[in-house]
Design a protein around this nucleic acid. Structure first.
Lengths: 346, 346
DNA sequence: ATGGAAAGTGCACACGTTTGCGCAAATTGG
DNA sequence: CCAATTTGCGCAAACGTGTGCACTTTCCAT
């Protein structure tokens, strides 16, 4: 049995209300009573029961995140760990805890969310990925429940969101190859239902167009977030009679798969084929050929998202509805082809 | 305002008690009433308020984890993401959520724990790392609060724990070099206050001893969990007049740092120096020289720990107090030195 | 028919807090 | 010195749910 406010009250010879007011530093409590009650609390090791507190205050000091797919697939990608690192750091600093649950399949993700929301377990929700069409957003809006989206929603443009400018990011990455004189640039995309996949594809197309390079549908493949699909995409590209000389790849883990496959097949990176990818996980620079990658400030993304959510939850004014975290192309060996360079400078 | 049990009761023309019994499938409720009440619940979209439920049932359907250090340092290492992946997957399957918080410094970790425990926010706690001396364990035991330790406690041998046999693991890794004829084998350890660091060091010593190789204190360095310290350790080793030909390294991330440093200095792995490390993060095989690593079943570690904890929480019998997850040395290029091989087979 | 058990439901209280309101005592100002 | 205000505290209700107990009704066996 843990010690309650009533126990304290009884011993201190005051009413439970008074004890409650002491813990919440109510102004109309005398110095003396406060001291006496606090002493007893310390002595008995009192800690407020958060469940009771939440029940009446209708607030939980907790934010929720729902991992968008079975966690198993998800955490394989370093990206999410980094995101969560940002979130939990900020939340903790602000005195909030983080409740994490996961959908066991794509279909019951909404169930998982409503368990948290309608069960009043959390004060706000952080959405970790944005799909092109997402019933969850509609649900949360309808419930008028505080949430922040990491990513972007085309369906609901007024939703609070933290994102990168992924169009620009892909534009930069592709432009990096164009500047080197590459004419045949392929693209390995992410899951097609993610907004970020579409944005990066759009940036790729935009760069090609501005450089008057033809867009070749055969040079665009879909991947997921795992190495294997990078490997598969690579195999396909290399089997083409007219294959690209450079690849823009949706994610570092995919790029690792591509790199590995190319090496196994005896191709040289960046000599035979150059690659650049996104997210810049810490190990990109430690690959057999250090991988050029667009750093999207993953940690910052999570940290800022948590910060915005807590602002909303606490009814503080939000400076802007959409925050863009800056990106930066980190050029490493995988995307600098010396031979092409030479051709250029001639 | 969300719909409560009372609302349902009023509409259905029954008492709140009856509704409560319907949701919990109490046997002594007539089929008819149950159907009627359930229909109304569906129609109004009833969801039980978990806070109220927890208050009376004294159970939260939640397990807690406290990240042992500031989350920032922690998640940089892939290991923890993998661990959490195992935990959250199992917990979700069992119908539990996971509450995550973090200590903002080493000193207030106990505060973070007691917030969860004494605030009755969680039903059980998972301890992610085991230090040689840890006040948290004493606290939890004294509170008689359910918890499971990932690792091992020498102070409290009866504590429920999930661990690897790290002594054997390091013994195997070291033995792998000894078998190849290496005589000068160095060791880069982890944080000295972790039990796992000590175990692996012990396994290393044991292997040396059995092979009648001298133990050289100069060849044992302490690192942390980050690349940089791997780099530093490597620099030191290479500056020695009489330096090791093989290194056993506490963690993959450290190994990445070592590998990178060696490459930068123009040394060849495994020719000039062979390395083997622990944890086998997915990227180990994708390093410039694929890194040999002892796979400790990280995901399994988390999954099993969560499973054990939930058993305890639900008062189910536990089959054993200490579970050992098997390890396996994955040999890759970084630890196979062809030249030494040749010498051996002659 | 009759007694006893079983089924079905409601009452009232409990869980540990917060908070509006009321009241007495202390303080203030003219 | 008295009225008006302020200060300090307790009462009681509320938050949404669970559950022991009692009560009525139905069922079954004798």
């Amino acid at each position: 049995m843990s010690v309650t406010i009533k126990d304290i009250a009884k011993i201190a010879g005051v009413s439970p209300s008074t004890v409650s007011r002491v813990v919440s530093n109510h102004p109309r409590i005398s110095q003396e009573t406060a001291r006496k009650v606090k002493a007893i609390m310390d002595q008995l090791g009192y800690h407020p029961n958060m469940m009771a507190k939440s029940l009446v205050s209708k607030t939980t000091q907790t934010i929720g995140i729902v991992l968008p797919r079975p966690a198993e697939e998800l955490f394989l990608n370093f990206f999410f760990g980094e995101l969560i690192r940002g979130i939990v750091t900020q939340a903790t600093r602000a005195g909030y805890d983080m409740l994490m649950t996961t959908a066991t399949s794509d279909s019951n993700e909404l169930d998982a969310i409503s368990r948290l929301v309608l069960g009043r377990r959390v004060d706000g929700i952080l959405l970790l990925s944005s799909r092109t069409s997402d019933p969850i957003i509609g649900f949360l809006k309808q419930q008028n429940f505080p949430f922040v989206l990491i990513g972007r929603s085309d369906e609901f443009p007024d939703v609070l969101s933290i994102d990168n400018n992924n169009i620009q990011a892909a534009y930069d990455a592709t432009g990096h190859f164009i500047a080197q004189g590459h004419k045949r640039i392929g693209f390995i995309s992410g899951p097609p239902n993610l907004v970020v996949s579409q944005d990066r594809l759009a940036g790729y197309k935009k760069a090609l167009k501005e450089a008057n390079l033809p867009f070749n549908q055969e040079w665009v493949l879909e991947g997921d977030l795992l190495q294997q699909s990078g490997f598969r995409a690579m195999s396909f590209f290399m089997s083409l009679p007219d294959r690209p000389t450079a690849l823009v790849i949706f994610d570092d883990l995919l790029a690792f798969g591509v790199l590995r496959g190319l090496t196994e097949l005896g191709y040289d990176v960046p000599q035979d084929i150059s690659i650049v990818s996104f997210n810049n996980i810490p190990l990109s620079e430690l690959a057999s050929t250090p991988i050029s990658s667009v750093d999207i400030g993953t940690y910052q993304l999570g940290y800022t998202a948590s910060q915005s959510l807590l602002r909303v939850v606490q009814d503080e004014p939000l400076l802007q509805n959409h925050i863009i975290i800056p990106h930066r192309l980190i050029v490493r060996e995988s995307s600098i082809n010396p031979s092409i360079r030479r051709t250029d400078s001639k």
